[in-house]
Design a binder for these strands. Structure first.
Length: 704
DNA sequence: GGCATGTGTATTTTT
DNA sequence: TACACATGCC
């Protein structure tokens, strides 16, 4: 028996791995080997004779799950581990609901609305109910979705959510209620679930008397990563899942809780002993990632937090370099400084892949990206706008979603409106013609869990009694119609659509077919269609790896390709590239060299979050997360001056202030430096004063 | 009435 | 840059 992997653990980690039955909470600081501990736990459980398929490993991203499974695989030297149920709450919910959803009246061919789709649906309702032209200001689709989502995820009343987080929308409460009602109805009529529904339905499922027991007992052990970033509904799910079997291990770090906008709450960690009786708690404090210098600065940062945290990380790694705070004249200089440092490290042998640039908001890297391109430094960007959010990619997925779920009105609406002369009204009429209901009354019978035959539904009507089409759109519509029908034609498609499993390679074939009819529309609507066409080819390439259309669509929705340039061209294996990432997306990652840019008040903390203490505390934790990603070298960059063209006020620039988090005490653990070797004479340090008016001036940049 | 087109404006973080 | 809204065209 090869238990060699246990020898690599320290005493605390080992206790966690070898913990017996019952609930366990592990408080694991940054870089304390959390991932390895979880992976070992998985390996250990399997070695103890627990079937891999009886282990549920809930992580924050799909990638985290697969990393751990691979590690466990290596430890055991076998691929037994593959059948572990690993993934995000949402992905697991999707999988379980396909199996057990019928128990709560869900047809198994439901499709999932991503954030954009959900917003579109809300917007549609907002228009239908006449709130778009109301005299009083009414919340927009994104705000509506945020309110809805927060209410669901925090499991709290609409009143409370409005009052606490959206006070400026409180006046519209009645209308919001009306919209939410319709939203719920329409989703059910269309056989679609949004992200929140996945959790909501899973929770309901887990709480059912009989099926809930079956679902819960299916898993002997439940392991949860990043517990500090779970929300109330997720905690409810876990309690539902552990009514009969009490084995649960949750791992988290209260100092790294950065998802309160998704209603995540540290309370889940604090309340763990109440939620799971008999729970034990352990703490991991030895950091293996960073040098003591990086930890000193990070620990000091957290000392200022409103709440005191009990952990203090220590490292036994040999002394390294002090973090560096670089003051730059302005943003262009910041870009130069970052590039210079990156290349310096590269020349000293640090691969680009072992370096990362981190920032608060997706667009903070815009200028840097231009400079990187100019200097021909390859990079992949994580977070921010994604491949999947591009209009043309969404169009193609809408085609596929209609094939999967012909009642998906959001997708129909999207597609039909691509046609010339077809807007919301005509599209709705056409949908009614083929039996896709846009209102709240259910069209198909979704109860009973019986799968719809592909041709018993709108697609049959599309084939046998096509709707009337405006003449300008006739040709293009006919193209779409034939393409959709071709995709479902058994003679062309190796048996077509049986139980959602199409014959091998069919999804890719479908995309290829659909692209034919989409191409002319595509070229009419979008410019730069060359670039966009490549995206569609890429989509087809990804689809080639899938057998089931349903799986493909679900994966693209729940776990879309995270890096924009992942898809830019054919992947070259030994290609070296720099990582750009939002801090949120950098969670759980580590790099040899970390560059944090825009460490200025208004950026970090974001002035969107400086309203209350809690918000500011979370921003501080964000900087903490960013800093603790560094293994050996940590750089913080701060531009003194921001140029702004948008609000033409004064001379077009204003002075920023160093982030309030980088206090004198924190600075005392850093080396201070100018941004660039060239052009330092441009820096007028005398201007850097603690003046209120300066601060206000900066704020005016983003406000008003 | 309904759609295409132009203009202005606001842009955190993600499953 | 993408979206919401207003205007003008069929």
């Amino acid at each position: 028996m090869s238990t060699r992997y246990l020898d690599d653990l320290n005493a605390d980690q080992r206790r966690a791995v070898e913990f017996g039955d019952g609930p366990l909470l592990v408080i694991a600081g940054a870089g304390t080997g959390k991932t390895r501990t979880l992976a070992c736990r998985v390996a250990h459980l399997i070695e103890q004779g627990i079937g891999a398929e009886r282990i549920l490993l809930l992580t924050f991203t799909r990638r985290a799950a697969s990393v751990m499974v691979r590690q466990a695989e290596r430890m055991l030297g076998s691929d037994d581990v593959r059948t572990v149920w690993g993934g995000t709450f949402h992905a697991v919910a999707n999988r379980l609901l396909h199996v057990y959803g019928h128990a709560i009246g869900l047809a198994p061919d439901f499709t999932i609305l991503d954030q954009g789709d959900a917003g579109d649906l809300l917007n549609l309702i907002r228009h239908d109910l006449g709130f778009a032209k109301a005299k009083t200001r009414f919340p927009k689709k994104q705000t509506l979705l945020d309110i809805y989502s927060h209410t669901v995820n925090a499991q709290s009343s609409l009143d409370a959510v409005l009052k606490r987080y959206f006070p400026w929308c409180a006046h519209a409460k009645d209308g919001i209620v009306e919209i939410f009602e319709a939203y719920v109805d329409r989703k059910s009529a269309q056989n679609v679930l949004d992200f929140d529904d996945l959790l909501l339905f899973w929770k309901a499922l887990s709480e059912l008397p009989e099926v809930g027991d079956v679902v819960g007992r299916r898993f002997e052990h439940v392991l949860v990563d990043e517990y500090q970033d779970t929300n109330s509904i997720q905690s409810g799910i876990l309690r539902g899942m552990r009514r009969n079997v009490s084995n649960i291990m949750a791992v988290g770090d209260d100092a790294q809780s950065i998802y309160s906008f998704r209603a995540a709450t540290v309370r889940n960690m604090l309340d763990f002993p109440d939620h799971f009786s008999g729970a034990e708690t352990m703490t991991l404090e030895q950091n293996y990632r960073s040098t003591q210098q990086v930890l000193d600065a990070s620990n000091t940062l957290m000392e200022q937090a409103g709440e005191r945290y009990t952990k203090n990380l220590f490292s036994h790694r040999p002394a390294g370099h002090r973090p560096v705070l670089l003051t730059c004249a302005d943003e262009p200089q910041q870009c130069n400084a970052v590039c210079d440092r990156i290349l310096e490290h590269r020349e000293r042998g640090v691969m680009l892949m072992d370096q990362a640039v981190l920032f608060r908001a997706g667009h903070h890297s815009a200028e840097l990206e231009v400079e990187l391109n100019r200097r021909k430094i390859p990079f992949h960007k994580y977070g921010g706008l994604k491949f999947i959010e591009a209009a043309h990619v969404k169009d193609m997925l809408a085609f596929l979603r209609i094939l999967e779920n012909p009642f998906d009105a959001v997708s129909w609406l999207r597609l039909l409106q691509l046609l010339t002369g077809v807007g919301p009204q005509i599209a709705s009429r056409m949908m009614r013609d083929i039996g896709v209901r846009t209102d709240s009354r259910s069209a198909g019978d979704c109860g009973g869990g019986r799968r719809q035959e592909p041709f018993s539904t709108p697609l049959a009507k599309l084939r046998d009694a096509p709707p009337v089409v405006p003449s300008a759109a006739r040709d293009e519509f006919e193209g779409i119609r034939l393409a959709l029908l071709d995709c479902l034609d058994p003679s062309r498609n190796h048996g077509g659509n049986v139980d959602g499993i199409s014959a091998s390679g069919t999804v890719a074939v479908e995309i290829e077919r659909l692209r034919l009819c989409y191409a002319p529309i595509f070229e009419r609507i979008y410019d730069k269609s060359e670039m966009r066409l490549r995206d569609l080819e890429q989509l087809e390439l990804i689809a080639a790896g899938y057998q089931s259309r349903g799986r493909f669509i679900a994966d693209m929705t729940l776990d879309p390709p995270s890096s924009t340039s992942d898809l830019a061209g054919p992947p070259v294996l030994d290609e070296d590239y720099l990582v750009l990432s939002t801090i949120h997306s950098a969670k759980g990652c580590e790099w040899d060299v970390v560059h944090i840019i825009h460490v200025a008040d208004g950026m970090l903390p974001s002035d969107m979050s400086t309203g209350d203490e809690e918000g500011i505390d979370e921003e501080r934790r964000l900087l903490y997360v960013a800093m603790t990603r560094a293994k050996n070298h940590l750089y913080l960059y701060f531009p003194l001056r921001y140029y702004h063209t948008k609000h033409r006020r004064g001379d077009g620039h204003s002075y920023a202030q160093l982030s309030r988090f980088v206090s004198p005490k924190v600075r005392s653990y850093m080396n201070l430096g100018g941004g660039t070797k060239v052009g330092d004479d441009d820096v007028d340090t005398s201007i850097r004063v603690d003046s209120k008016s300066v601060r206000d001036q900066v704020r005016n940049l983003w406000r008003s």
